[in-house]
């Protein structure tokens, strides 16, 4: 039986594993963490329909029941001889396969890199990921100071569209996530005032504009077009937020109880993968596909395929579709390989 190794057990890897199994391939998933699901597993609910992230992860996990999953390990060495890919893992064990699918995804932008935003310095500055944890905990929305917030500001584009942190790209999903989270907060705390500070509101997909419309008309979220310039803390531990209201053409200041930084997707975590597999990576840390228009699933090296956010920011349906597309390409590749033997 021909074998495919999948690097990364996030949603792209799990989806591809299921499809490959169904096509009759043996699959091994190598996941660096001890739990599968990647970044999605750390989320509470998902836009646009508030589906629990756990449900999505569990459904996909079910797909992988016939695959071998190696958890808590990374690939430290890769060699290819003929049709065989040989991978040495961090524990010294060796995995061989006929093709490799890389689904290593993204890393959340470390918000403390934006020093002026005060993350890990001012208590009441948190990230979108921290807020999801708060949602998941079921303990309600409480600021790190222990207060039920009355005013909350969501800051879009943290670590995205920002050359100062080497991330020129738009992370695509943060606008929709901010609107989703803003509505969730307002739903939980109807008396609160919720603000979204955005540069451009990129609600690009079918149902997203409806979310935005509801955020305005149903939830009364305040949208301010302006990028956060800096935060500071006042003597009661509240956060002073400064930006320009670019539609009004005036500087703006407000004091809030909680600031939520919408951290973007970084490719940076893929550097090691690119080195080990000797495949091309862009300056932004995302892996380079063979063709940005017609072939997003082939890497720069034969027999190594790519899917999901390791090649750039994507939402969940795009990631899933790409995983399936990669499976189709791997299938064609392995058929040809077998025919030539």
């Amino acid at each position: 039986m021909q074998k495919v190794a999948i690097i990364g057990g996030g949603i792209a890897g799990m989806e591809a594993a299921g499809q490959l199994n169904r096509l009759g391939y043996e699959v091994v998933i190598i996941e660096k963490n001890n739990v599968p699901g990647g970044n999605v597993a750390n989320w509470d609910r998902l836009f646009p329909h508030q589906r629990p992230a756990g449900e999505v992860v569990r459904t996909l996990e079910h797909e992988t029941e016939n695959a071998t999953i190696i958890k808590g390990k990374t690939v430290i060495n890769f060699e290819k001889s003929g049709n065989i890919c040989r991978m040495e893992l961090s524990d010294g064990k060796v995995v061989t396969a006929n093709a490799v699918l890389i689904t290593t995804g993204f890393r959340l932008f470390p918000a403390e890199k934006k020093e002026e935003y005060g993350y890990k310095i001012y208590d009441n500055v948190i990230t979108s990921a921290d807020l999801e944890k708060m949602f998941s905990s079921g303990k309600g929305i409480v600021t790190p100071s222990g207060k039920i917030p009355e005013k909350i500001a969501f800051i879009h584009c943290v670590g995205s569209r920002d050359e100062k942190v080497n991330n020129r790209h738009c992370s695509k999903v943060c606008c929709a996530t901010a609107v989703k989270q803003a509505c969730e907060v307002k739903e939980a705390l109807p008396e609160s005032e919720v603000f979204c500070l955005y540069m451009d509101l990129r609600m690009f997909d079918r149902h997203y504009e409806t979310m935005y419309h509801e955020a305005q008309t149903k939830f009364g979220i305040n949208f301010i077009r302006g990028r956060l310039s800096e935060t500071s803390e006042d003597n009661s531990g509240r956060i002073v937020v400064k930006c320009e209201d670019t539609l009004a053409g005036k500087p703006l200041k407000m004091t809030v109880d909680l600031v939520v930084l919408m951290v973007g997707m970084e490719g940076e975590g893929n550097r090691k993968i690119a080195e080990v597999f000797k495949i091309q990576m862009g300056k932004d840390g995302f892996l380079d596909a063979a063709d940005d228009y017609l072939n997003m699933t082939q890497s720069s090296r034969e027999g190594i395929f790519l899917a999901g956010t390791c090649t750039g920011p994507k939402n969940i349906p795009e990631t899933i579709a790409e995983a399936r597309a990669a499976v189709s390409d791997i299938h064609v590749f392995l058929n040809r390989q077998q025919a030539s033997v």
Partner: peptide, 9 residues
């Protein structure tokens, strides 16, 4: 205010 955050910077 977390002083260790400032120290890291």
């Amino acid at each position: 205010m977390k002083n260790e955050g400032k120290r890291r910077i």
